[in-house]
Simulated assay, not measured.
Amino acid sequence: MGLRAFVLAVALLLGAAPAQAEPQGLPSPGLTRLLQAELARFPSKSGIYVKDLATGEEAAVRGDEHFESASTIKIAVMVLAFRLADAGKLDLNARYTLRPEDYRGGSGVLRYGDFGATPTVRDLITQMIITSDNTATDIMIRKVGGPAAVNDFLRGSGYVALKLNKTLLDHFRWRYEVLDPKYRALSPQDVYALQSNAPYFTAPRAALIAEVRRESAARDLDTLVARQNDVEDTWLGVVTPVELGRMLEGIERETVASPAACEEMKRMLRAQQSGARKIPHFLTVPVAHKTGENTGVTHDMGMIYARSGTIVMVSLNTGATGLIADADDRIGELARLVVDYFDGAR
């Protein structure tokens, strides 16, 4: 007996009706119980959404709860960019010249290059996805019209919870505003200097860097920031497992943009360079995915191209304790369990 059949049999014994394998889909009580049992062992607040696109069978735990997005919200920026390209309002082949004020800390590779590089808009979207590049992300947020335009697109598309609160610049600068409101006036170059060791940025700002370090140590900046972890306005964005899953399904089914645009998005997601220890870790089938990380936060979401068909999976985990690498492994183990559940019965 395969894992899927076993779980359904247990569900029947417990008095739950099995989900019907219909394209429209019905919640799967057996899979839900299995996922609940697994997440109960996670040292974090965790939510998950899983859907077999071939049958519509789906399950969720904390599916509609709000989670800090970290970089998973970048997928909404990508979809909007391709929709604008479809409408002739954004040229993916146009080149953009990188300037000092574009550089952002955190993830990505563009900040390690020299000024004056001229990636295409398509290159920027690619880096935003496959290396979660924050420099590329803020450029693309501007290109699509800013956070308000992203949120108008999301509301117009029927997403209730998904939201981009701010740019990466504002998100990083907020950390210093927690110390003192005067830091709201920090320039993009100031913020980047506080997050890098690049002499071009740090040398002229040595006094500022020393001042912020003194204040951070004296007031325990990490603790000040942690006290606001549950305040949604302080997050980069807001997501839920179910709504992220819906967006992924739209990309896979080629309904969120033109078929050609969706194919490009899927190629980018399949070229992911981060999160090898997450969804793909223990799998031997292709995965197209996007990660998100922050302090105590580790997410992954994507399409798993299992032998039985495509599975959408979204795993969100916040307030994680212990090693993040261990939390990433748990995401990988969940993905293996999900694939075994669907593939093992066929």
Rank of each mutant, 00 (worst) to 15 (best):
A5T: 13
A21S: 13
P27H: 14
L31E: 13
L34W: 05
A37H: 13
E38I: 15
L39S: 12
F42A: 14
K45P: 06
Y49F: 15
V50N: 13
A59G: 14
A59S: 13
I73N: 00
A76F: 10
R83H: 10
R83M: 10
R83Y: 12
D86P: 11
L92T: 06
A94M: 07
R95A: 07
Y96T: 09
R99N: 08
R104Y: 00
R104L: 00
G106T: 02
G113H: 08
F115D: 07
R122P: 00
I125V: 13
I130T: 06
V144T: 06
G146P: 07
V150H: 06
R155S: 11
V160C: 03
K163N: 03
L164Q: 04
K166C: 04
E177N: 01
Y183C: 02
A185N: 06
Y192F: 09
A193D: 08
L194K: 00
Y200W: 14
F201H: 04
T202R: 01
R205M: 02
A206D: 04
I209M: 01
E211R: 15
R213Y: 06
A218W: 07
V225W: 01
V225Q: 00
E232Y: 09
W235K: 02
T240W: 08
L244P: 08
R246H: 11
R246M: 05
R253T: 14
V256D: 06
M265T: 06
M265I: 10
L269C: 13
L269N: 08
Q273W: 06
H281T: 08
H281F: 15
T295I: 02
G296C: 04
H299I: 03
D300V: 11
M301K: 05
M313S: 08
V314H: 12
G319S: 11
G322F: 04
G322T: 07
D328S: 10
D329H: 14
D329S: 15
A335P: 04
V338F: 15
D343W: 07
A345N: 14
